[in-house]
Amino acid sequence: MNSSDQGSVRPGQPEAIKAVPVRHPGRWAGALVVAVLAAMLIHALVTNHQFQWDVVRKYLFDSSILHGLGVTLELTALSMLIGVFGGTILAIMRLSPNPVLSGTAWFYIWVFRGTPILVQLLFWNFLGALWPKLSIGVPFGPAFGSESTNKLIPLFVAALLGLGLNEAAYMAEIVRGGIQSVSVGQTEAAHALGMSQSSTMRRIILPQAMRVIIPPTGNETISMLKTTSLVSAISLEELLRAGENIYSRTFQTIPLLVVVSIWYLLMTSILTVVQYYIERHYARGANRILPPTPLQRLRGLFSGRSPRTTTPDVVPGLEGGGHL
């Protein structure tokens, strides 16, 4: 300590501690390795003429690619609707004390999770080979009307059934896990207030289970977006098939695969942001401090300050679930 410091310290007081920041050489070494690898990747993308970026720009907004993109988005949305709705019903059946209902749900999940989705798509596509006509009538009795199976189940419907029914099996386990994460006391309290089983499930159990259900459901949606590429095996023109059709004529395979990859990356990025905000919404009432949004993170990054978190307005006495 110099003379000025000695003069500022009163007798009997401890000396001021000079804090020395802890050095982390391993972090700097890791950051340097990552920076070098990133620079090598950018250099390879820019200097390798086999990527043919001019061709990528040419076909990025091609009408065939945009049509395939629309089919991919439509398949993803409808398949997830079927999966979420069917999975919720299967989960409730699986938890039912009725052995017929629970056994039927278990068998469905066992079959659809136990066979590859590509095999299921092919089965739906070639269903006409098993039943050339589908009929409506009395079971084991006369039929009132029939129609060709291939006409009733065209390519798009076959793809939708294959993707949606398979997703329902996975969503059933996700919803079942969410329902079982809610305390049994919630159900008992609702029944004590005179609520029926269906009302308890709809108004008490499922809203609380959403915090557990949403994260894996978001992952399933992103996975479904990419799984739709399998329908190219039954000749349905979605995003990947549209790219394949173009490079089969032009022989520009790599640029078209880059185009397809760019669109998949863009869509998965959007879905990731949407999933984050949905998770953040259902975290209200459970967490006192909400994580910062992506915009808040960006502001904190450019301002040099740590991103601010948000404290939800929790109603006193309802810290576990209620909010304003």
Rank of each mutant, 00 (worst) to 15 (best):
S4A: 14
F112N: 05
V231E: 10
G218S: 05
L118D: 08
A242N: 04
I117W: 07
V56A: 02
V314M: 12
W28G: 06
A283L: 15
F107W: 13
G177Y: 10
H24C: 00
S269V: 08
A190V: 06
T200Q: 06
I289R: 11
Q120F: 00
M80N: 03
R241I: 00
A29V: 14
R57V: 12
F61R: 00
L193N: 09
L165V: 15
L225N: 04
P307Y: 11
S64A: 09
L60Q: 01
Q186A: 03
V84P: 03
V157F: 15
L90Y: 10
S3T: 15
Y108N: 03
Y282M: 03
V231G: 03
Y247I: 05
I204A: 04
S4L: 12
Q52G: 07
P132C: 01
G300P: 02
H43L: 12
L240K: 04
T200C: 05
T115Y: 03
G243P: 01
H323R: 11
I17M: 07
E244P: 02
Q186C: 02
L90T: 08
G141C: 09
L73P: 08
A158F: 06
M93K: 05
N166W: 13
S63Q: 13
V157E: 15
L257V: 04
N150F: 10
G218C: 05
D62L: 09
H49D: 13
D313Y: 12
P142T: 14
Y276I: 03
R211P: 06
W131Y: 14
E237L: 05
M93W: 14
V111D: 08
L160H: 11
T309E: 10
G162R: 12
L295F: 14
A91V: 07
A233H: 07
P316V: 07
N245P: 01
I214Y: 10
T293C: 04
M80H: 05
A16C: 02
P216Q: 01
G300Q: 13
L301M: 12
Q208K: 07
P99L: 02
F140A: 06
S232N: 09
I270M: 06
T76I: 04
D62E: 02
S269I: 06
G83L: 07
L45G: 04
V100E: 09
R113T: 01
S248Q: 15
S198K: 10
A77F: 15
I65T: 01
G68I: 11
T88Q: 03
V111M: 08
F251T: 09
G128F: 13
G178M: 03
L160I: 12
I89K: 02
I205F: 05
L75C: 00
T228V: 01
L240Q: 04
S96P: 05
P132M: 02
F123S: 04
V184C: 04
I179Y: 07
L240P: 00
F302W: 13
T227L: 07
S96G: 03
G162E: 11
S269D: 06
A38S: 14
G87Y: 10
L163W: 14
E167P: 02
G300Y: 14
T311A: 12
G317S: 01
I89S: 02
L165K: 12
E15T: 13
L163Y: 11
D5H: 09
P154N: 15
I153E: 13
W110M: 06
Y108L: 01
L318Q: 15
L265C: 06
I179T: 05
M40W: 09
R308P: 00
S4G: 09
I153L: 12
R27N: 11
S196K: 09
W263N: 00
P255N: 08
R202P: 01
G321V: 15
